[in-house]
């Protein structure tokens, strides 16, 4: 079945971006392929890993399980929109990554947490990243990084 392309305006990191996509194009593919924002990663494409985590209207979501067309007019934030964020600095300081492939997703999950809870507890931190797998096993340092960003050492 052939379906015409649809014009969709996405609001990404504060800027309006127009794309022409099939309805079946996911937000993740629209970001990565149509807009060249490759920070969010495609690792499972099934909502099972968290590498594609972005913020939608301030909430952490899996971009692989959203249709781009369904996100028209909503506020999308990706790792590319962060600039010298305390979380980014803390990730470097705590060595909170190895291969780095899950890192943008981890950071965005924590970004959502910090926007609601500026000084989260360890339990809240772990909960916030419990939907972000890290196969290198950097969890301990991811929690440490979040602690640093929360002002605790």
């Amino acid at each position: 079945m052939s379906v015409p392309l649809e014009s969709v305006t996405l609001r990404v990191n504060g800027a309006e971006r127009a794309v022409r996509v099939e309805p079946r194009r996911t937000l993740l593919d629209a970001l990565r392929l149509d807009l060249g924002l490759t920070g969010a990663k495609k690792a499972c494409d099934m909502g099972n890993c968290g590498a594609c985590t972005v913020l939608l209207d301030g909430r952490a979501v899996y971009a692989c399980l959203l249709l781009a067309i369904d996100c028209a007019g909503r506020e999308i934030a990706t790792v590319e929109g962060l600039h010298d964020d305390p979380l980014q600095r803390a990730f470097i300081e705590a060595d909170a990554f190895q291969c780095g492939f899950c890192t943008p997703g981890q950071i965005m999950s924590l970004k959502a947490l910090f926007s609601r809870t500026p000084a989260p507890s360890d339990e809240e931190i772990v909960r916030a990243v419990s939907g972000n797998l890290c196969r290198c096993g950097a969890y301990r340092n991811i929690v440490r990084a979040a602690r640093i960003a929360a002002g605790r050492r």
């Binding site: 909502g47 968290g50 952490a60 979501v61 899996y62 999950s109 939907g131």
Partner: peptide
């Protein structure tokens, strides 16, 4: 249930 991301969606 699931994860924070899925619970948001």
């Amino acid at each position: 249930a699931a994860t924070p991301q899925l619970r948001n969606m």
